[in-house]
């Protein structure tokens, strides 16, 4: 997801004929592969969207990693560990797909650590409670699925293929989250309160994951035309709300939105205004945990320095002995 529709797409001067032929391939649902001709703007937009997506998977490990050592049972610990490991895998699939567009892994890492590249706003919220692991799996991975399923048909082959792998793994993530919420919601009063509290804190940030409202999202049209986006931000958000509200009701949990109500005529839920000011602040780096998240990535990068060095020396030695 995770790109949140912030990418831009300004084209340079390219031969009309090539551009037309390219668009025709896309209109015919043909996939574009790494060595095919593509407009520079398409390449740039994809690099931005895909690297943001990969960064989100990587940074997304942090809020949940926070609970691995204190998961309530061994079973929960193993599940959480597997889930977080999957997210690392997702990051790697997408980084590898992004590299086919001509950007190096090192450059992407540099952009993340320098703050130049964005990642999903959702991972800048803290996870003070075990119930947050439930809310994240259920809502955050749930929102990610809404966004990623259409990306399985994205026009860029390597991106689409990595999404197919990822989507297969995401449903486990969402289910284990809902399972945590179910156990808490059916537990003691204190446990139910924990579940409700996590829902209260994660509901609105989860809705923001779909990016700005369509009326403020300037680059969507081009991305739609290129088929690296299939549904608008608002459409996906509505889809997510419609799917999630009954799930909350089923657990006896209350969505923290007093304007939320079923609209018979539209066949959708109406919902309250999103606090876009908060969204912009978090994207800008002023969310509750932005600094902490980047500092954690930087620390991991620095502490891994000797491993990368050792690997390089090893590689050199191997070559020398041949």
């Amino acid at each position: 997801m995770y790109s949140q529709g912030l990418q831009d797409a300004k084209g340079g001067q390219e031969p009309e004929g090539l551009l037309k032929a390219f668009q025709k391939r896309i209109d015919n649902e043909e996939k574009i592969e790494p060595r095919d001709w593509m407009p520079e703007a398409y390449r740039k937009t994809l690099i931005r969207q895909m690297s943001q997506h990969a960064h989100s998977e990587i940074v997304g490990q942090l809020p949940e990693g926070n609970w691995i050592t204190r998961a309530p049972t061994l079973k929960r610990k193993m599940i959480l560990l597997a889930k977080v490991q999957d997210e690392a895998g997702h990051g790697l699939y997408i980084y590898s797909a992004t590299e086919t567009l001509g950007i190096s892994r090192d450059e992407m890492t540099r952009q993340l650590l320098s703050g130049e590249a964005k990642y999903s706003s959702i991972f800048n919220y803290p996870t003070p409670s075990w119930a947050d692991m439930g809310a994240i799996g259920w809502l955050v991975d749930g929102a990610a699925i809404m966004n990623q399923v259409p990306l399985c048909r994205a026009s860029y082959g390597p991106y689409a293929r990595s999404m197919v792998r990822i989507c297969k793994e995401e449903s486990f993530h969402q289910r284990q989250g809902y399972d945590i919420m179910t156990v808490l919601a059916r537990g003691s009063r204190a446990q139910k309160k924990m579940a409700q509290d996590a829902l209260n804190r994660f509901w609105w940030p989860a809705l923001m994951m779909f990016g700005p409202s369509d009326k403020d999202s300037t680059h969507s049209a081009q991305s739609m035309q290129w088929k690296i986006k299939r549904f608008s931000n608002d459409d996906l958000r509505q889809k997510f709300i419609d799917a999630t509200v009954p799930q909350a009701e089923h657990l006896g949990l209350t969505i923290p939105d007093k304007d939320l109500k079923w609209n018979e005529e539209r066949g959708h839920y109406d919902f309250g205004e999103i606090d876009w000011q908060e969204f912009i602040q978090v994207i800008k780096g002023n969310g509750p945990c932005n600094k902490q998240r980047l500092a954690a990535r930087q620390k991991a990068h620095d502490e891994g320095e000797w491993v990368r060095k050792a690997a390089e020396i090893y590689q050199q030695n191997q070559q020398d002995t041949v």
């Binding site: 490991q85 590299e99 892994r105 690997a311 090893y314």
Partner: peptide, 24 residues
């Protein structure tokens, strides 16, 4: 073909590939 990864030598590539691409 399933994707790519970085490694210092083929052995490391194999080990990483097992962890990245065959968890299930």
């Amino acid at each position: 073909h399933v994707g790519s990864l970085h490694a210092a030598d083929p052995q490391m590539a194999l080990q990483n590939a097992r962890d990245v691409y065959t968890r299930r």
